[in-house]
């Protein structure tokens, strides 16, 4: 059975480390006007996985408990992240704390290499991934579309890859469609999630049409004028993009292809 038939004969779910979810929208939990609006946005979007950052919130005595409890109470899967970590050691310590706080082996691994663009430090990323996988973590690495880095992350034991669409918070969409398309083609069996840089729902739909398994975003929803409505808009766009992929879109042609015969019309170029 080819991949396309399989997609249509089973319920269209996506699987990360053995966990099946229906929603292909993953949401970050930072920067919302309030926890109440965050909760409403998550409900409106049907999101089943949310990321939560710990590095700065934990303080010296894990003092972010109130907010984390709000996240736990949402009843969705929590993917703790190592946002704001710049060294391998920091990322590993944060991941260990996350596992303890949320009782999950999942971690979205960010090792930031550059402050301005928040571009991942892919060398540190591979190193941290290797250590974390050895320690029993299930790592979701935030990476670039670089294929060699992707190979190394997979051999380190990552079973999901999360390439950026554009720098974090930039809202620029898919900056390198060619690179993302090649990545999809190179790793047909690995769940791929476009993470970061997505600004509007059409960007997310484009990623889904390209064959990506899911999209992770935060700022585009949190900083929208109406985050709840925007969350719903993204959910619909992602569904539309996914449906379009499964529906097998038409090929693009260089010439217009009229759907009705042109016989009988005046000769062109008279």
């Amino acid at each position: 059975m080819d991949a396309m038939t399989e997609k249509t004969t089973h319920a269209d779910t996506v699987e990360f480390y053995g966990a099946r979810v229906n929603s292909r929208l993953l949401l970050g939990t930072a920067q919302y006007p309030s926890p109440a609006i965050l909760a409403e946005a998550i409900r409106a979007s049907g999101t089943e996985i949310v990321t939560v950052s710990l590095r700065r919130e934990s303080g010296v005595a894990k003092s972010g408990q109130s907010f984390w409890q709000i996240i736990r109470d949402l009843g969705v899967k929590v993917l703790p992240n190592t946002a704001g970590c710049k060294t391998v050691k920091e990322a590993i310590t944060t991941a260990e704390m996350a596992r303890e706080l949320f009782g999950t082996p999942w971690v979205k691994l960010e090792v930031i290499g550059e402050d301005d663009t928040l571009q991942p430090d892919v060398f540190g990323l591979v190193e941290a991934a290797r250590t974390l996988v050895r320690d029993g973590f299930q790592v979701f690495p935030y990476t670039t579309e670089d294929l060699v880095v992707a190979e190394k992350l997979i051999s380190a034991g990552c079973e999901v890859l999360m390439p950026w669409g554009a720098p974090i918070g930039s809202g620029r969409g898919l900056n390198n469609p060619y690179g993302l398309r090649s990545m999809r083609a190179h790793f047909p069996g690995i769940p791929l999630v476009v993470d970061a840089g997505v600004g509007v729902p059409s960007h997310a739909a484009a990623a889904m049409e390209m064959g990506y398994d899911a999209v992770l975003l935060n700022t585009a929803v949190a900083k929208a004028g109406d985050p709840v409505r925007m969350a719903r808009a993204f959910a619909r766009a992602i569904e539309a993009g996914r449906e379009a992929l499964i529906a097998d879109p038409m090929e693009v042609r260089d010439m217009a292809a009229p759907s009705t015969p042109v016989m009988g019309r005046a000769v062109l170029g008279q």
């Binding site: 700065r56 919130e57 303080g59 010296v60 972010g64 408990q65 109130s66």
Partner: peptide, 13 residues
């Protein structure tokens, strides 16, 4: 504006 209830501690960052 940080989501925790830690009083008094100011960080370098």
């Amino acid at each position: 504006s940080i989501e925790n209830d830690e009083r008094g501690r100011v960080t370098g960052r």
